[in-house]
Design a protein around this nucleic acid. Structure first.
Length: 442
RNA sequence: GACCCUAUCGUCCAGUGGCCUAGGACACCGCCCUUUCACGGCGGCGACACGGGUUCGAAUCCCGUUAGGGUCGCCA
């Protein structure tokens, strides 16, 4: 399927990719893919104080992490560049000349202003529908500045010029630009170019409904990258914010979303970012991760938490990680869940101590130690049999032994399957840890 | 303040005049499964912002109010 659809994602290099920007990029990407069109990436760095190179890199990294590639732009090439506004000076100059020739600009204290036509501006937004703005009053809509006295350009002007030059057919952007659109439409008309289609997507709000700004928790994509989230899960969650496959499904693969995505069906309502749901969805994906990728991400998460895996045999690490699969939702939870495999001097959970390290349990734990010590083969099946035999020999429930034992060897009340975890730990470590716990009883 | 957008469970989404005593998901609570946790299963809690219309009939259409968000820069 070929088409003339050309969309663009045009972020300002702020040093990180905002979660709202990420979704705008995602929707642009989806629309391009759905229509067989092209996605252009353009860096809007007209503000000279911004450190473009590094800040732009953060944007590429974020987009690539999400799996969003662009057809034209930095590091991708294209015939309609350059794709940094800071490198398009002569183009802007020529467009300014056109406006000047048409007598649509004038100087004001050294800056250049664009003279609006005093009229009603109407346009049809793909998402928001028919929009009317009354621009007849210079009081409420004063002529806008398009170039500063120092020669630098203002967003509205360069944005429109670039969209014209890059032959953008559909401008898909955040709803915060809806009120700016009539100004842009006026610019198109003054330049004698038909405006593109506009589609303003709703904004992402904080969980409490307030506006999500730079400093808010979760505003930066980095939060998810560093927090041990999977890109496919975050991408899936973002798809569901303001758009729906309509059949109550939550987990959708990318190819299917591309097929179903319909820009016109995107909501008009702002949505709150629900980290809990995003985390749940992540857990769904983690559970289905291939063993290799799970192992790789697991090692990364543990290393990041300060654990030196080099001190352990690869087989030990692999087996340890294996017992944790499917038990947690985001990788940042892994160190707390399975860190005991790599630390002998861990603290014992206080609630657990109060509940299980009571005097009456000391003989029980001793009996378990004795049973385990007598084992020749230290595998899950033998351990389970030994523990159950110990329990029935004393006419107590298995749980009465399981809980103190788990606490003794892991320091926690929750964790991987006890018998498997004991097997991975090995006889030596298990007996040592049991002794260490026993010493706590005084 | 002016203008623009929006308004279904706490959150995300389904619902486009009768199928709605409003459905699903996350979260929360209970039960079951179970060596813990998680998963899974079952059940519960929980919403059409308010007021007027239109219509035989309104969550769905219209108007108003209220609330939230956005824009009004020589930021993007």
């Amino acid at each position: 399927m070929s088409s003339n659809t050309r969309v663009r994602f045009a972020p300002s290099p702020t040093g990180y990719l905002h979660i709202g920007g990420a979704r705008t990029a995602l929707f642009n990407w989806l629309h391009a893919k759905h229509t067989g069109g092209v996605l252009v990436l353009r860096i809007e760095d007209t503000d000279r104080s911004r450190n473009t190179a590094e800040a732009a890199q953060a944007i590429y990294d974020g987009l690539r992490w999400l799996g969003l590639d662009w057809d034209e732009g930095p590091e991708a090439g294209g015939d309609l560049g350059p794709y940094f506004q800071s490198e398009r000076e002569t183009i802007y100059q020529s467009y300014l000349d056109r406006l000047r020739a048409a007598d649509r600009v004038y100087d004001d204290n050294g800056s250049v202003r664009f003279r609006f036509t005093r009229e009603k501006v109407v346009f049809d937004d793909v998402i928001c529908g028919h929009i009317e703005f009354d621009m007849t009053s210079a009081e409420t809509n004063p002529d806008m500045t398009i170039r500063r006295p120092d020669g630098s350009w203002i967003f509205h002007f360069v944005n429109v010029v670039d969209d014209i030059e890059m032959k953008i057919s559909d401008v898909i952007r955040g709803e915060d630009h809806l009120s700016n659109t009539p100004k842009h439409v006026q610019l198109y008309r003054a330049l004698g170019v038909p405006p593109p289609r506009f589609a303003h997507i709703p904004l992402i709000l904080n969980r409490d409904g307030s506006k999500m700004s730079k400093r808010d928790q979760g505003a930066s994509l980095n939060t998810y990258i560093e927090g041990g989230y999977l890109p496919e899960a975050v991408r899936n969650y973002l798809c569901l914010l303001g758009w729906s496959p309509k059949d109550n499904r939550e987990k959708l693969d990318l190819a299917e979303v591309v097929q179903l995505f319909d820009l016109a069906k995107v909501h008009r309502k702002n949505a709150a970012f629900d980290l809990d749901k995003c985390t749940w969805l992540n857990g769904e994906y983690v559970r289905e991760l291939s063993d290799d990728r799970f192992q790789e991400m697991g090692r990364q998460a543990l290393t990041k938490a300060g654990i030196d895996l080099g001190k352990f045999l690869p087989d030990y690490v692999r087996a340890a990680l294996e017992t944790c699969k499917g038990k947690f939702r985001i990788f940042s939870e892994l160190p707390a869940y399975g860190g005991f495999y790599f630390k002998d001097d861990f603290e014992f959970n206080a609630d657990g101590v109060a509940k299980h390290f009571v005097p009456a349990n000391k003989p029980l734990l001793l009996a378990v130690r004795e049973a385990f010590a007598a084992l020749d083969t230290f595998d899950a099946a033998s351990l389970e049999a030994a523990l159950k035999a110990t329990a029935s020999g004393r006419a107590i429930k298995v749980g009465a032994l399981v809980h103190p034992t788990r606490l003794a060897v892991t320091g926690s009340n929750a964790g991987p399957s006890l018998y498997h975890l004991l097997e991975v730990l090995g006889k030596e470590k298990v007996l040592a840890r049991l002794d260490r716990a026993l010493s706590r009883f005084g």
